[in-house]
Computed example of a mutant assay.
Amino acid sequence: MNSTFMLDGEEVPFTPGQTVMQAAAAAGKYIPHLCWHPDFAAHGSCKLCTVKIGGRFATACTVRAAAGQEVDNHTPELTHKRRTLLQLLFVEGNHFCPSCEKSGDCALQATAYEMGMLTPHFDHFFPDRPVDASHPDVLLEFNRCIMCELCVRASREVDGKDVFALSGRGTGSHLIVNSESGRLADTDFAATDRAAAVCPVGVILKKRVGFAIPIGKRTYDIAPISAQPAGDPDTGNKLEETP
């Protein structure tokens, strides 16, 4: 028999070694997240999955579940903190949802709706991040990167290619391509790579299949992110599939 912990007053079962996030996802409970992915080791960078365990803040993707834990996930305090983190992500990049091909299938946008984010609040940074259209099958729109490193991990751990990396520090951090020229075309990246489908926003886009699913009929247009199958991280890439 599995042990249990309390999540917002409800019992959630877990198996030894599972994190709070893993157990919650398996039970169909939504904890906001962007950098967590069930196929990869926890990264803990976005901090959106921060919860309160026994009155202390902790990231649900890194803390092991334990019998008798009392975890607060949906509280006004946590919603406010998560909303602030989302606002910072929006102003640190260039996110123009109405004109973005990923609108309606973007986890960042969907999470902002979920957290009731109405404005960016902070001044926009407007970083200079040129688009890389050099690859015959894939476009890189660096302006939308949120530094989750999912593409970095997928390329390294699944594809065995190490195509992507993060460079710089602080507000100067940015995604780079591991080639002498810095161009995606000068790597062995393929549109069939796992890294091509794992981005939660609109950085990695397959060419010639844009808007195959019209806006208004996409994943998060139909149901909010909290109502999606827990731990279904590649949902937001369905628009890039051919009809």
Results as ranks from 00 to 15, higher is better:
residue 1 M to N: 04
residue 2 N to Q: 10
residue 6 M to W: 06
residue 9 G to I: 02
residue 10 E to R: 14
residue 10 E to H: 12
residue 13 P to F: 03
residue 22 Q to E: 15
residue 31 I to R: 07
residue 36 W to D: 12
residue 38 P to A: 07
residue 48 L to S: 06
residue 53 I to E: 11
residue 57 F to M: 09
residue 59 T to Q: 15
residue 65 A to L: 05
residue 74 H to E: 15
residue 74 H to C: 06
residue 75 T to E: 08
residue 81 K to F: 15
residue 82 R to Q: 08
residue 83 R to M: 09
residue 88 L to T: 12
residue 99 S to Y: 13
residue 105 D to G: 12
residue 107 A to H: 14
residue 109 Q to L: 13
residue 114 E to H: 15
residue 116 G to A: 04
residue 118 L to M: 11
residue 119 T to I: 12
residue 120 P to G: 01
residue 121 H to I: 09
residue 124 H to M: 14
residue 125 F to I: 05
residue 131 V to A: 08
residue 134 S to N: 03
residue 135 H to P: 00
residue 136 P to D: 06
residue 138 V to E: 01
residue 139 L to N: 09
residue 143 N to V: 02
residue 149 E to F: 03
residue 156 R to P: 01
residue 157 E to D: 14
residue 160 G to Q: 05
residue 160 G to P: 04
residue 162 D to T: 00
residue 163 V to A: 05
residue 164 F to N: 02
residue 168 G to Q: 05
residue 172 G to W: 02
residue 173 S to P: 00
residue 176 I to M: 07
residue 177 V to H: 02
residue 178 N to G: 02
residue 178 N to L: 07
residue 182 G to F: 02
residue 191 A to K: 14
residue 192 T to A: 15
residue 197 A to K: 14
residue 198 V to E: 02
residue 200 P to F: 01
residue 206 K to R: 15
residue 206 K to P: 01
residue 207 K to M: 04
residue 211 F to E: 10
residue 211 F to S: 09
residue 216 G to S: 09
residue 221 D to L: 03
residue 223 A to I: 00
residue 225 I to H: 08
residue 225 I to F: 05
residue 228 Q to E: 07
residue 229 P to N: 10
residue 229 P to A: 10
residue 234 D to V: 09
residue 236 G to P: 10
residue 236 G to D: 05
residue 238 K to I: 15
residue 240 E to R: 07
residue 241 E to H: 14
residue 241 E to Q: 14
residue 243 P to F: 10
residue 243 P to D: 09
